[in-house]
Simulated assay, not measured.
Amino acid sequence: MAIGQGLFVLASLGLAGIFLLQVLDAAGTVAIGFADWRPVLYAYLFWSVALCARQVLVRGEEGQKALFVLPAVLFTVAMAIFPTVFGFYIAFTDWNLSSSTGMKFNGLDNLRSLVNDPFFWNALGNMAFYVAMVLVQYAIAFGLALLLNAEIRARKFFRVAFLLPFMLSPVAVSWMIGKSLMEVRFGPLASLMKTLGWDSPAFFASPWIARLSIMAMDAWVWIPFVMILLLAGLQALPHEIKEAAKVDGATGWQSFWEITFPLMLPVSITAIVLRIIFQLKLADIVINVTSGGPGGATDTISSFIFREYRDRSNVGYGTMVAEVYLIVIIIFITLLLNLTARFMRKPD
């Protein structure tokens, strides 16, 4: 017991000392830090091993049970929590990779720049539109799920065929559709639009047409995901209720609206929430097809952050945007989950 406790105390002191030394060096207080953060990582690994050993040596059987959880917790701290906390530190610095001055603390300057940045608010408004379009995708996916749940010929073939877009990378979809089929000069879809009377079928020249085009490609990729969740829910519904409604003389629409749709609400809400979470990360199609254009009309927060890093090498400001967007997502998802929980809570 004493060995385990002593090993843990020694590892904790070592980790705290190395981390403090590295922080002081990064702040410019001392000049005896390490070249990178690798020693801190090694100290953290040693501290993690010491913590696990302490659990076994000090707590016995209870400590052995904790070993089933501790590695996952420690990995999450290292790969998710620490980078997020470290990102908050970077967000309050003036750090441009193209500058020779390196990283400098600049207080709230990045936050002030963000508040006064019209491109950020434009991208945030676009995200509100993209998230709202999830409801349209849900409606289409529900219709397809109902179709594939019905007794139709080649039902298994259509189920696999409708899932094919979800198997493709969004980057491949953006080049296959956005850069090929919808190309204004030689694209097959553009040629079809010319035949139908559209003189200049430029899908990405007008702001609203560009947004809808991006959403069409995004929907083509993600509707199968929502569809397969709803299809699984439909197949789990009891057939006796539908048969009883049919015997009572309910029409197809009445059976859907009064029975199928209410019973599918838990699955529907789960599918919509998951789809919204994925939608909040939309970037790849926008980056590859329009790069946020025309004039930022299709920009998302993720594509905006990407350009801050890649084109402007502005690590400090880009990280501030990312951290603020993370806070916005946490608040939005928390409110959404609370709202859905209240909506689904049965009355006493």
Results as ranks from 00 to 15, higher is better:
residue 1 M to N: 10
residue 4 G to D: 02
residue 4 G to R: 06
residue 5 Q to D: 05
residue 5 Q to F: 13
residue 5 Q to C: 02
residue 10 L to A: 14
residue 10 L to S: 12
residue 15 L to D: 01
residue 16 A to W: 11
residue 17 G to L: 14
residue 17 G to I: 07
residue 26 A to T: 08
residue 30 V to C: 03
residue 32 I to G: 08
residue 34 F to L: 06
residue 35 A to S: 13
residue 39 P to R: 01
residue 39 P to F: 03
residue 43 A to M: 12
residue 47 W to M: 09
residue 52 C to L: 10
residue 65 K to S: 09
residue 70 L to V: 11
residue 74 L to M: 12
residue 74 L to D: 01
residue 77 V to E: 11
residue 78 A to V: 11
residue 79 M to C: 08
residue 80 A to S: 12
residue 80 A to H: 13
residue 83 P to F: 05
residue 85 V to G: 05
residue 85 V to L: 15
residue 86 F to M: 12
residue 87 G to A: 14
residue 90 I to L: 15
residue 91 A to E: 09
residue 97 L to Y: 09
residue 103 M to V: 06
residue 105 F to K: 06
residue 107 G to I: 01
residue 110 N to P: 10
residue 110 N to K: 13
residue 111 L to K: 09
residue 112 R to G: 00
residue 112 R to K: 13
residue 115 V to R: 09
residue 116 N to D: 13
residue 118 P to V: 06
residue 119 F to Y: 13
residue 123 A to S: 13
residue 125 G to M: 04
residue 126 N to L: 08
residue 126 N to P: 10
residue 128 A to L: 14
residue 129 F to P: 01
residue 131 V to K: 06
residue 138 Y to L: 11
residue 141 A to E: 11
residue 141 A to M: 09
residue 143 G to R: 11
residue 147 L to I: 11
residue 149 N to I: 05
residue 157 F to K: 06
residue 162 F to S: 05
residue 166 F to P: 00
residue 172 A to R: 01
residue 176 M to T: 04
residue 178 G to V: 03
residue 178 G to S: 05
residue 180 S to I: 05
residue 185 R to C: 00
residue 187 G to K: 07
residue 189 L to M: 13
residue 189 L to K: 02
residue 192 L to R: 08
residue 192 L to M: 12
residue 199 D to E: 15
residue 204 F to I: 01
residue 207 P to T: 05
residue 208 W to I: 06
residue 208 W to Q: 12
residue 209 I to L: 14
residue 215 M to W: 10
residue 215 M to S: 10
residue 216 A to E: 02
residue 217 M to P: 09
residue 217 M to E: 04
residue 219 A to W: 13
residue 233 G to D: 05
residue 233 G to W: 07
residue 234 L to T: 03
residue 236 A to H: 05
residue 246 K to W: 09
residue 247 V to F: 04
residue 247 V to Y: 04
residue 250 A to G: 02
residue 254 Q to P: 03
residue 255 S to Q: 15
residue 256 F to W: 15
residue 268 S to T: 15
residue 270 T to M: 12
residue 272 I to Q: 06
residue 275 R to D: 09
residue 277 I to M: 13
residue 280 L to H: 05
residue 289 V to L: 01
residue 289 V to H: 02
residue 290 T to K: 06
residue 292 G to P: 05
residue 292 G to Y: 08
residue 293 G to D: 03
residue 297 A to N: 01
residue 298 T to R: 02
residue 306 F to M: 08
residue 306 F to S: 07
residue 312 R to Q: 14
residue 312 R to C: 00
residue 316 G to N: 10
residue 319 T to W: 10
residue 319 T to P: 07
residue 322 A to L: 04
residue 323 E to A: 08
residue 326 L to D: 00
residue 330 I to H: 02
residue 330 I to S: 10
residue 333 I to R: 03
residue 333 I to C: 02
residue 334 T to K: 06
residue 339 L to H: 11
residue 348 D to R: 13
residue 348 D to M: 01
